[in-house]
Structure formats: structure tokens, C-alpha cells
Design a protein around this nucleic acid. Structure first.
Lengths: 186, 186, 186, 186
DNA sequence: TATGAATGAGCGTTCATTCAT
DNA sequence: TATGAATGAACGCTCATTCAT
């Protein structure tokens, strides 16, 4: 029963992913329509659902891949030695997650693997994030790194949330994050 | 140009709100259907849209009102003197916001007044929350109450978010919140 | 029971008519909305329906008045002595009736006083038209002027109808009318 | 790029048309409701709009088909040799077009392919009508058959229009048509 | 007369998802 | 695997007309 993945399968999947990326480039993540993706990929609609459980699964893939590449870069960097350096390092992540309200919402929703069934790409990036933050705080002896990491996650979300808020639109997420981290890691 | 709001208008609005609450009681917030609300209220569909821009506007009203009554109770209570007492006091808020994934999502999305145009009922409750937390931390002299308040907000969201997460489903939001607050208000 | 028409009544009516004309000038007859008319007139919606049985009654008034002024001019002119002169004289009428497809349709529908109840302004203009055409053909002795008049009416409608037709958009209604009249009055 | 129309598509389309005809048989053309058609056809509403741009497009199909079958019969008959015979032959057409004011209005509006973009079924029947009348008058040498045909069209519309007119309700369209044709084809 | 909130039937639309071929 | 027609449950909206005050 072990099915060797056929070349055609991979090719179709790649066509769909590429088409999806092209659509996102034009219409944004929120504006992505399955219809447009399959049309661009030159396949039938049913084919899409043979490759992805649902539209959200594609979204999970796309967003997860994007996040992963951001974390790849972060992992390669040295541990930041100050709140300012941390917020600075998180710049690309913040930029991506706040690029669209829709992106922020989907990532948040899938960060905890909405359903209980399986951990998807986005949820996995949150584990990476957690491990990264734990590594950043490993040297501290006031609080356990795990707790500190969760705190950083919380403040990161908070800082980005306020970005979308009409009342706080003036200040930037990164600046807010610095303030939070200074207090949290004091 | 100033049109005095007629009694009939208020009555109809109340009928719609009451009907909506009844529907929510039966089917939950996610299960609310405009058609059912309208039918229960004994009102024409056009009337609904004369009172609420769209279904989301009604949701904003309903959830905002519910949150407000929770904050009314919180405002009446004395300032909690420990992280445990705080988490305890926030029990009803946590219970409500995590009662449905849909509720949590809508509240979060509208907490920042999704659009920049106008601040709705839900967004206003987040201001109340902020002022409440600032009051709770007013006596402290290590950090400004405003910053401490934002931190509590961040940890509250974090604690509730993890409630929906497959990886952390075992522990309760309230317990997690205590841990966070102990560290934050140490 | 004889009600003297109050000055206020006439004033309100005039305000409505004026507002309607202004709306037509902006949005055309088809684009006229009762809401916009009453808003411009500065009266309530109910007031509109106290003055006009329905929106069509207003339309009947507006279009009838316009047609009447056209026929006033036609009545003042001498009897045209050729098909060319006839078609020429009818230029303004054709221009008005073909200015909007909607105008043509409404006039046609009301030309025969759609309902049986009462003859409205538009229907009256068709009687004027009929009498005019009968006068134009009174000197002929081949066919009764009434029949000739009805024929002219028929060809006038036909010529204008084809104006809206994709297949005949090239030639003008007036030119077609000349052809028809030459044959009919040969 | 050339998609062969699937049998299923044709079947669904037929189901919709049949259902629509059944509804018309019960409620008349004006009484046709999309929801009822869809329900009778046992088809989803979305499917309806996948087959017809809007309700009017269905109407165009239905009325065009009906007209076509009338013209099929007319084409099979010999050329009528008198105004009386012509009016007689046109009996079914007149009966159908004056069966409902709504039918007459829709046919007239679509006779010229309301928009300039595409010629629909009804518009096509007017071309048939024109060719038919030209054939009926082909033997005459006083005026070109095309002109005579357009005249017959004009008088036919005129005769039917007056049917709906309160002022001429007494006499029948067919009788009026005879009078007109006698004069036109004298 | 004047007011303006309420009516209400129905159309059009959306678009992810399914399923028979 | 691939196909693409069909699904279907809401939502949003229109806008002339009515009616209680």
C-alpha cells in the first residue's frame, strides 16, 4: 500500500502552489480565490481539492512557508543582546504578519492548530518561535526561559494587534515591542 | 438637521436585539442567522438593515453589550491584591470570550476597530479593560500602570489563545494567566 | 366639501416637481429615486405620496409636461408640406423620446393609459399628436385623415424603436421616418 | 480552449426551461419567480445563475422560443394573398404577444436587443418576422419588399399597442391590423 | 397635510466544496 | 488523479409604498 509519489502529482502540486503565489502577489492573501488559482494553474477545480483538504490547507502551506523562511534567517542570526536588538530582529516577522489583517488573523487562528487533529505548517512555526525565544533567554536566571518565551510571544502579538487598532495607529509595532520587552526582561 | 430619535425606533431596535439574544441562547453566536432574528423580532428584513449596517454590526452590539456588563461587575469590585485574585476576577470575562471560538475571533478582530473609521462597542470595551487594569496596578511604583495594564491585556489574550490550542488544551486559561501575572507583577 | 387648494399644498407640489426635475437633470429619468426627490425637496417621503398616487404618476406629470411643450411648439408651426418637412418638424419629439430607453418605454406604456381608470398627461399628449397628424393630412383625399394619422404614429414609433436596436443603430430615426412617410403618403 | 458542452449541462438547462414553462403555465410570465423555477427543477439557485445571466435572460429564452414556434408555423404556410389573410395568419402571434401586458413589454424591449452587445432570442425572431413579411410582399412592384415589411411590423405593433389602450379597448387588434394593411398595401 | 420608520417580496451573488464520470 | 458542473445556505440589497402619529 505504499504509494510512490508520482512525478505528475508533484508537478500538479507545484503548479498549484506557484499559481497561488502569483494570485497572492496580485490580490493579496485575503483576495485569493480557489477559482483563480486553478485557472492560473490550468487545472480543474476538483484537482485542487485532491491536493489540499480545503482552501485553508493551502493557506496554511503558503503562510507557513513564508514564516519558515523568516525563521530560517532568524535562526542563523546570533542571539540578540537587548530588547532593541530583539525587536529589530523580529522586524521581518512583524512586517509579514501585519501586512494584511487577514494574514494576522489566519496565522493567529492556526497558530494553535485550530482543530485538534494535526499540527500544520503555521502551528509548527509557532513552536520554532517558542524555541527561538527560549534560546534568546536561556542565559537569564530570574525566570525560566520557557515562561520568558511565552511572554515575548504574548507581547509580540499585543504589539502587532495594536497596529490594526485605530486608537494606536500612530506608533509602530516594533517600538511598542521594545517598550514591552524592556519591562518584561528588566 | 438634528433628528430626535423616535420612541418607535428604539422599540424596534430593542425588539431586534432581544430576538438576537434569544437566537444566541438557542444556537450560539456563530449559529445566529439574520433571517431568524428578523422572524423572531416580527420585523421586516429591510428593517434589520436600516438598524444595522450588516450582520457584523449586530454582532458588535451584542458582544459589546455582554462585555460591558462583565466590566460593570468588575468595576464594582475592589482592586484585587494578587495575581490569583486578578485571574479570579477575570474568570467571567475569560469564560465568555472562550465560550466559542467564533466569539473570541470576532472580539479580537473588532477589539481594534477593524476599520479605522469608527470605534464600535467591542473596541470601547477594550478601552474599559485598559482603564480597569491601569486602576488595578495604580499603586505600584516599579512600572507605569499603563504599561502594566497593556501587559495584563497581552497575557490575558495569550492565556485564552492557548485555550483553543491543541498543544495546551490540558491546562486552563485562568491557571496560565496566574503564572503570567506572577511573573509580570513580580 | 369643496376644498380650496391651499397655498401650502401648491408650494409643496412645486417643490417636489422642481426637485424631481433637478434629479432628472443629474441622474436621468431612469435614475430618479423617490428618496432623492423628497430629500432635495426637503419634505418627508409620505408627503410625496400625498401629492402623487405613485412614482409613475410623477413620471407621467414630468414626461407629459415635456411632451406638451414640444406639441405647443408643433401646433404653432404651419402644416408641413412634405414627408421631409414632417420628419423635420418631429425632430424635437424624436430627440426627447429616444433620449433614454426608459423614457421611450414609459411613454409607450402610458400612451394608451395603461390602466383603464383615467387618462393621464402622457395619454393626453398622444391625443394631441393624433389631432396634429390628422390636421397635417386633412387636405388629402385618398384616405381618411384619421387613418393617415394613425399610420404616421405607427411609423414614428417604428422609426424610434429601431434607434435602440443594435442592428439598425447606424441610420437615424428621422431618416427612417422620411422613408416611411414617403411611402405612406405617396 | 474549446470546451465541449457536456450532456449533463444540457440536461440541467432543459430541466430549468421545463420547470420555467410549468411555472408560466400556472402563474403566467409576469408571475414567474426564479425561486419557484429552481425548486421545480430540483436544482440549486446557483445553478440557475450559472445557466442564465439573470431572470431576464431566461425570459428572453422562453419568449424567444415561443415566438419561434409561431414563426415556424407561419413559415410553413403559403403566402397570404390579402390583408385579411395576413391579419388572419398573424392571429397566433397577436394572441401570444397580447396575452399579457408584461409579455408585450418584454418582447418589445428585447426586440431591438436592448443592449448593443448581443442579439438574443427575441431579437432574432424579429429578424425572422422581417424576412417573413418581405417574402409576403415579394411579388409587389410598387415598393421594395423590405420597406413594405417594415411597414407591416409598424402596423402590427400599433394594432397590438392599442389593445392595451383604454381608449381603443373595444375593437380588436386583428381588425385594426386589417384596416392598416388595406391602406398600406393598397 | 406632513412625517419617516417600517414594510416585504424577490433578485442577485458568493464561493468553498462535492461528486459522478 | 483529473474533470467541472452542480451545490446551497446565507447575506446583502433594492426601493416603491404604507400607516400610525
Amino acid at each position: 500500500m505504499n504509494k510512490p509519489i508520482q512525478a505528475r502529482t508533484l508537478k500538479t502540486r507545484a503548479k498549484l502552489i506557484d499559481a497561488a503565489k502569483a494570485v497572492v502577489a496580485t490580490s493579496g492573501y485575503e483576495g485569493l480565490r480557489v477559482d483563480e488559482v486553478v485557472q492560473r494553474a490550468g487545472v480543474a477545480k476538483g484537482t485542487f481539492f485532491a491536493h489540499f483538504r480545503d482552501k485553508d490547507a493551502l493557506m496554511d502551506q503558503l503562510l507557513g512557508a513564508e514564516m519558515d523562511s523568516i525563521f530560517d534567517a532568524l535562526d542563523a542570526e546570533p542571539v540578540p543582546d537587548s530588547p532593541e536588538a530583539m525587536a529589530d530582529a523580529l522586524g521581518p516577522l512583524i512586517a509579514f504578519m501585519t501586512s494584511e489583517r487577514y494574514v494576522f488573523d489566519v496565522i493567529l487562528r492556526y497558530s494553535g492548530a485550530a482543530g485538534v487533529t494535526e499540527i500544520g505548517p503555521i502551528a509548527r512555526t509557532f513552536e520554532r518561535q517558542f524555541r527561538l525565544f527560549a534560546r534568546w533567554t536561556a542565559q537569564r536566571d530570574d525566570l525560566p526561559p520557557e515562561l520568558l518565551a511565552e511572554g515575548i510571544q504574548a507581547f509580540l502579538i499585543q504589539a502587532m494587534s495594536l497596529q490594526f487598532c485605530a486608537l494606536h495607529a500612530s506608533s509602530q509595532a516594533q517600538d511598542r515591542l521594545v517598550t514591552y520587552l524592556r519591562a518584561w526582561l528588566r
